[in-house]
Structure formats: structure tokens, C-alpha cells
Write a protein that binds this DNA or RNA. Structure first.
Lengths: 242, 242
DNA sequence: CAATGTTTTTATCGATCGATAAATACAACA
DNA sequence: TGTTGTATTTATCGATCGATAAAAACATTG
């Protein structure tokens, strides 16, 4: 319907056309970029594909994707054997290459109060995942039944939640031998899910929210700390720690 | 690829074929149902379409949908003007016609302790929404950018969260004039989101979870109560209430 | 300039999509 | 039983999909 005119569209080939730049239609007026190096072109395809598929979903067409790139559709197949291979590559980039190694040390640095560590971590971490692009890719992938989502959830458990629980127990002087159990993990998921759902409401459904991201994180952490403390007290009533 | 044989497939029309039932291919061996009344057929199309689109997404084809119904594809267009109209109808059924009016009185029945009210409510409510079908429809719809999701979130706020906050304050003897504020709402969303994300993990991504649904609800509510109490104490430190 | 190698485009194929029109099978009624 | 009305199927159209092959445009060398 809204198809834009193609480069040098109907006229097969008129002699004087040679020197004219193809104007790279949809990519904007500024686009002197034809004939990129193979590596650059591949990178660009990947980047723009993420934008494109995040907005329209993975059922978006390759022709429209090419238009978004300012090139033609068959070019995609020089850099990716087929559409699915391109999508798999997107998964990898979006999911796995985003974890900042610094967060590993940040989360376990016991010189800093845990509450503060978590606030810092979640503010940075949510900068990465709480945006329309990441979240939409995440859901599109999940609904397609892709195994990468399971791997992502496992990664969250391992790198964030278990760590968080261990640090919590360390901070409040519980014996290290007493490892957190399944119920504790589910409680940590409550925190993670609450924060995540804020992102869903705000960035996927674009519903007005009441608090800024920082305030929300602070609220969520306060609630989690209070909840977890009370849960620990309930399971093994400690003498008042004054 | 895996296309099943069509009714009286290639042979155009052989005379003796008349009496044979078309066996209604994909609908199972038992299916003596041809020529339903218009109303019944419409209902059936709607019901099976929900199943179908919940599994494959709204980009699923009408031909495969018809196969799932045990009929032919053009029949769909006798009951729905086009595919999108069918989908819109699905939204309406799945989203809006599921609220049980009894929940209104259940949530506000102050003869019952709030903690218990909420446990009962969320167990019943999650029976409705925490299943693959509902959740997948929910996400497919949201990713398509349909406004019905916003209406649903508004409905949750109005019918569940604000009510929950008011009841909480009533139960703990805060002046009714002191209405809950935006921060409180966000805290209630933490509860809702935590419970919802349990459903995402379990029913969308089919990840193993550590607690049963009831246990998870109980944990979530405990945590919320502890968190909200401590938040209220923090905002207005009360003299010890014992 | 001409020769060579890589990038990009043009043109096209077969499959499948949503949708429509016309023919056919069935059920109710006379 | 024959007539009539509705439910259902057969056949098909135009558009679009992913993908491929061949031609053209460009950049890099000599």
C-alpha cells in the first residue's frame, strides 16, 4: 500500500542514469553509503534488523527490512544464508552480549552495603533491558518458542538471583552453610518480576507509570528487603539483633 | 509440508462419493458435525481460533486454522468479514469477558481478613489468566500494538490494585481520608508483576519453577504485606501499635 | 586506460497468504 | 417427493513471501 518508489524504478536502464546516486530511499536524505566493506555491511544489517524486527516482529518481510536499510532485498542473502539465520544472530547479540562483566564484581563487593549495590546494579541493568527494543525482541522470541529464552532465565537466576540471596544472607549474618532454598529463589523472582513488569507496562504497552525508574527500583528493593527479612524471621525466629 | 489429505482430495467428483462423511480430517475421529447452525458454527470458530492463535500467533494462516476446525477456509468468511475482525472478537472474549463479578464483593468484604481475601482472590484470578492460552494471547496482542492492552492494565488498576490499597489502609486503621498515592500504586504493581511474571516463566517459557501457584501467591502476599507495612511506617512513623 | 574481483541490483521462481465467486451438499418445508 | 434456503466446498485471483540466478555497478589494481 504505502510502498515507496523503488530506485530507478520502472525505466529499465537509461544511459544517463549511471552517475546518479541511488539516494538510498528510506534511509534519509543523508546516505552516501553504497558499497560498504563486507564486515561493515554485515554489522549494519544486523543493527538495523534489530530496530526493524523490534518494531514489526519477526514476521516482518525481508523486502521492507531492505527498504529500512536503504538497499535491496537480495543483498541480505549475501550476508546471511536465510532469514532465520539472521534472526538467530539477533538473539545472540541482544541476549547474551549485553551482560557487563563489571556487574559480577559489583554484586559481590561486600565493602559496599548490599542495598546500595543492588540499587546501582539494577539501575544499570535496567538501562540495558528496560527499553522497547530489548523487551519486544524478548517477547517476540519467547512467543516463537525459542530456546534462547530459557537460557536467558537461567542466566538471570545464576548471575543475579542466587547471588543476591547469598549476599543477603551474608550481610545479615546468617551461617554461610545455610544456603538459600527454593522458596527464597521464588521470592527473588518476585523482585525481578516486579521490576520487569514495570518495563512491560512502560515500554511495551506505553502505559503511564507513577514513578521514575530509579524510584521504582528503590521501592521494589525496599519492599523486597522488608519481605525477605520477615520471611527469614518467620522461618527461624531470631533473637532481636538490636 | 505436513499437509494432511484433503476431503475427497484429487478426484474431482465421483458419483458414489456422495454419502460418505468428510471425516472432518484434523478434528479427530469423532466428529459427526457438519452443517451446524449459524450461531453454533460461529461459536465454534471463535473457540478454536483462540486455541489456534494462542499456539501459533496471529500470523497463523486461515487455511491451517480451518484445518484445525475440520472445515474449509472460505467458510470462515461467512462468519467473519475478514481475519482482523475475527481477531478483534478474540480480544474481546479473552480480555473483558473473564472478570468474575463475585470478585468485586470478595475483595471488599471486610468481615474477612484482607490477607485471606487476597489469597482467595489471586488463586481464582490466576486460574483464569495464568495459563498458556491467556498469556500468549495477551502478549501477541500487546506486541501488535493493540489498544486493548492498555484498557486491560487500566482495568487491573481499577478493579484490583486501588481496591487492594484502600482495603489495606482500612485494615490497618489508617484514616480513610488519607488516600493511597502514586508510590503506593507502584508498590501494588510490584505484587501484580511478581505474580504475573511467575506465569510468564511457567506458562510461556515453560521454565521449571520452585513453588506451586498457591505457595507462590502466599509468598508474594507475605512479602507485599511486609513491604507495604514498612513503607507506611517509614513515611509516617507510628507509635508501636501493639 | 583496461583487467579483475567484489558488491549490489534486476528479474524471476514457487509457495503461500487473505479473500471472492460460483458451484454443490444438505436440511426444512411444501 | 420436489422446492427452497442456507451451509459448505471447489476453484481461483492478486498480492506478497523467502529465496536464487544472472546481470550490472563499482572499486582496486595493473
Amino acid at each position: 500500500m504505502t510502498r515507496t518508489v523503488q530506485n530507478r524504478a520502472t525505466a529499465p536502464r537509461s544511459a544517463g542514469d549511471r552517475a546518479r546516486r541511488p539516494a538510498s530511499s528510506a534511509a534519509g536524505p543523508d546516505a552516501p553509503k553504497r558499497r560498504l566493506s563486507a564486515a561493515d555491511r554485515r554489522r549494519e544489517i544486523l543493527a538495523k534488523s534489530i530496530e526493524y524486527f523490534a518494531t514489526v516482529g519477526f514476521d516482518g518481510g525481508t523486502r521492507e527490512l531492505a527498504r529500512h536499510l536503504g538497499t535491496t532485498q537480495p543483498l541480505l542473502y549475501r550476508y546471511f544464508p536465510n532469514k532465520d539465520a539472521l534472526i538467530q544472530e539477533i538473539y545472540k547479540v541482544v541476549y547474551l552480549d549485553q551482560w557487563n562483566p563489571r556487574w559480577d564484581s559489583l554484586l559481590t563487593d561486600r565493602k559496599v552495603p548490599l542495598r546500595q549495590r543492588l540499587q546501582t546494579f539494577y539501575e544499570e541493568y535496567t538501562d540495558v533491558i528496560l527499553n522497547p527494543q530489548w523487551m519486544r525482541i524478548y517477547f517476540f522470541a519467547g512467543l516463537k518458542g525459542v530456546s534462547i529464552n530459557e537460557r536467558y532465565l537461567a542466566l538471570v537466576e545464576e548471575r543475579i538471583l542466587w547471588r543476591l540471596l547469598r549476599e543477603f544472607r551474608a550481610e545479615y549474618g546468617l551461617p554461610a552453610a545455610l544456603e538459600p532454598g527454593p522458596g527464597d529463589l521464588e521470592l527473588a523472582w518476585q523482585l525481578q518480576g516486579g521490576i520487569f513488569y514495570y518495563g512491560v507496562r512502560r515500554y511495551v504497552y506505553q502505559t503511564p507509570v507513577q514513578l521514575s525508574k530509579s524510584e521504582m527500583i528503590s521501592t521494589a528493593l525496599d519492599s523486597f528487603f522488608a519481605g525477605y527479612k520477615s520471611a527469614l524471621d518467620r522461618s527461624r525466629p531470631t533473637p532481636r539483633s538490636s
